[in-house]
Amino acid sequence: MPITFKDVFFTHDPNTPLAANALKGVNFEIEDGSFFAIVGKTGCGKSTLIQHINALLTPMSGEIRVGEFVNHPVKKKRQLKKVPELRREVGVVFQFPEYQLFEETVEKDVAFAPKNFGLKEKEALDEAHKALSLVDLDESFYKRSPFDLSGGEKRRVAIAGVLAFKPKVLVIDEPTAGLDPVGAEEMMSLFQRIHDEGTTIILVTHDMDIVLKHADKVAVMDDGKCVGVYDPKELFKEDISSYSLDDPLVYGFAKRVKQKGLDLDVSSIKDVDSLADAIIASKGGIL
């Protein structure tokens, strides 16, 4: 399902002294099946933006198209048509989703959404079990209380709860925040797998190494506007510090050695392995 933002404006608490313009004319398009990253400093409007994708917010002006669905300015949200259908297709995993767990057991928590969407108890549990195996939680977890699990396990349960209704588009906000490095890597390979099976992924992150490694397109947000959609490698060639973005570690290193005089071809660099290849090539291969 392609997603299009067209001249989207949004103001928090309009007509009050607290009014804050969060989106000031956002335009971009997300192709069906892509792994799309959204980056930008805290407060640039990323989180407000993603809440428009499944119509948790409606714009003040402009429109957002998600497949057939159109999110546009309305007086009352129930005037929007087909919101439940939209929310079956677009799953959103918010930041620190583990705070949203509420059921007695892991399987009940994960089965909540499929049941809500009309599946019978048994079918919903089947879907829940499938989703739990996707996030590497086996049947020993089914009957446990989600509150007795570790932080990383809780987060995986929360993500399974979204995967259980098989959304075609998965929106994830900072899924690796607060995880240890290996936990973060496992989390990202899970989303890569889900993407490779055909789901469109929209990822909000501060981690540019993740963007470089996983995303095929990246939108840069700055002060409520989308300043551009790039191929990640093209973006990181530029000076991105004015958007308060960090270079990925591999690119930062490549840029510094280049500045110090090493003739390095940065175009193929994606991770540490390809960086090592580029360095060796610039040194004329192995002697």
């Binding site: 290193f253 540490v272 392995d273 290849d277 360095i279 060796i280 040194k283 192995i286």
Partner: peptide, 10 residues
């Protein structure tokens, strides 16, 4: 990075 270079013979 040091290890990656080493494993490739550098």
């Amino acid at each position: 990075l040091k290890n990656a270079l080493k494993s490739k013979g550098f």
